[in-house]
Design a protein around this nucleic acid. Structure first.
Lengths: 243, 243
DNA sequence: TAGTGGTCTAGACCACCGT
DNA sequence: CGGTGGTCTAGACCACTAA
């Protein structure tokens, strides 16, 4: 009489799925409050405790943010604390003091090559937008990036938009294209600066640099951004907490 | 009549503290079962739910491991799944297939320099043990490390012990010196291979390498290991998940 | 003061494990 | 089968926020 359950999923996970669906559908937008636990409990016909457990997990996933006494909010890259959530590069010795600044260098359309297509899970030859930019800490260029975006999801993105937008790229993507970056994966290697990188970062050719490749995912583990860049680590370092 | 609480700490956190104390005191050793939630609830005179929440946090911290139907265990670096928990270097393209192998090269005692003393929060000039070793993936040397350990905590560590111990260093430290590594922090830069590194890793001098500096902490955020090493990233990369 | 999330409890039942 | 952790519920009270 016991239940055979190869696909057993507890109630709170199903609730989590329903809340995720509502988020994907845009029912509640980044930065906004979602309904109270009590309201959601009524809506989904479960107890408040079950909703709570679903929300707990989503808060741990950085998808929702709890604020005691106020409510539960949809996480947003517009929030200054989330703005550089994925950036691990910090000035030598200390934590991050002042926010780096993104300087767009170039922006064009092209067909996706093998690598970009694989990283973004799109057809080779599909249209992509490529953004080249530099990240400055203070007045020093520290990061030189090339960012590959599936054109389909970023229609209308151009140099002007990049120049006008003074804060982080992800807050632009979220605001203009409704894209929520949930998680990312980076692959890091050491490389020698080629001429182009040396010029952008104002270092000598062949200076050792960090090569950082990042794939960023939205809901449902869908990749929506691929970037490859080089980091100058003369006065900065990549800081990683292992837990 | 309401409580003024500048130091308010919920019950379950106090319970967490008590369980941590018991762990530090060695009441339950790595790999062993701790008492059931019900037993702990009786012992600490709280409800099972409160104990559960304390254990939930400690499981999230990788200090305890829950096993349904069996009990809750003290996490151990002897467990194959935890053995290389802090190692982020993986073969190009894929995840980790076969475990790397640690080859000790040298081991000696010295006085802590400025850097080591600061990293380990000990007095400059205090006695430290320095271990030099190489990590091999298959037959290739990929990592060359220098590991600094406060002598006080690792009394009796020598080359023979390092050579006899075939598995990971942390499982040795745990088993022989009762040291549980809880978390670590790494600082990563790009450097050019010097002659010594080039020789150990069998690469050309000036090859770009990852420079990785790690401080490892035990209970109470006490640093108990400092290591600095270089990683060859020709066929491997440092893989980091951002969440 | 009303409403939100945060804590704590008690009890019922389920899924999993070893014997 | 008995014991463990895992889920779900219901209700009481606390801490925080905003109006």
């Amino acid at each position: 009489m016991t239940q055979i359950s190869p696909t057993f999923s507890p109630l709170y996970r199903q609730i989590k799925g329903l809340i995720l669906q509502a988020l994907e559908s845009g029912e509640w937008r980044p930065g906004q409050v979602i309904p109270s636990e009590q309201e959601l409990a009524v809506r989904f016909n479960v107890s408040q405790g079950t909703v709570r457990k679903a929300i707990d997990e989503m808060a741990a996933d950085n998808i929702l943010v709890r604020r005691q006494g106020r409510g539960t909010y949809v996480a947003s890259h517009t929030d200054p604390r989330q703005m550089f959530r994925f950036l691990r590069l910090v000035p030598e010795g200390g934590e991050l003091l002042t926010h780096p600044k993104s300087i767009p260098v170039d922006c064009w359309r092209a067909k996706a090559g093998q690598e970009a297509a694989r990283a973004l899970a799109i057809e080779p030859g599909a249209q992509v937008i490529i953004v080249r930019r530099v990240l400055q800490y203070g007045r020093r260029p520290i990061v030189a990036d090339e960012i590959y975006l599936p054109e389909e999801l970023y229609q209308g993105l151009d140099m002007e938009m990049l120049q006008v937008w003074s804060s982080s790229l992800y807050s632009l993507f979220e605001t203009r294209f409704g894209l929520r970056m949930i998680r990312a994966q980076e692959r890091i290697r050491a490389v020698a600066a080629d001429r182009a990188a040396a010029e952008l970062l104002q270092v000598d050719e062949n200076t050792p640099l960090l090569s950082v490749e990042r794939v960023t995912y939205t809901y449902g583990d869908k990749p929506v951004e691929w970037r490859r860049g080089v980091y100058s680590t003369a006065e900065h370092c990549y800081l990683n907490d292992l837990t």
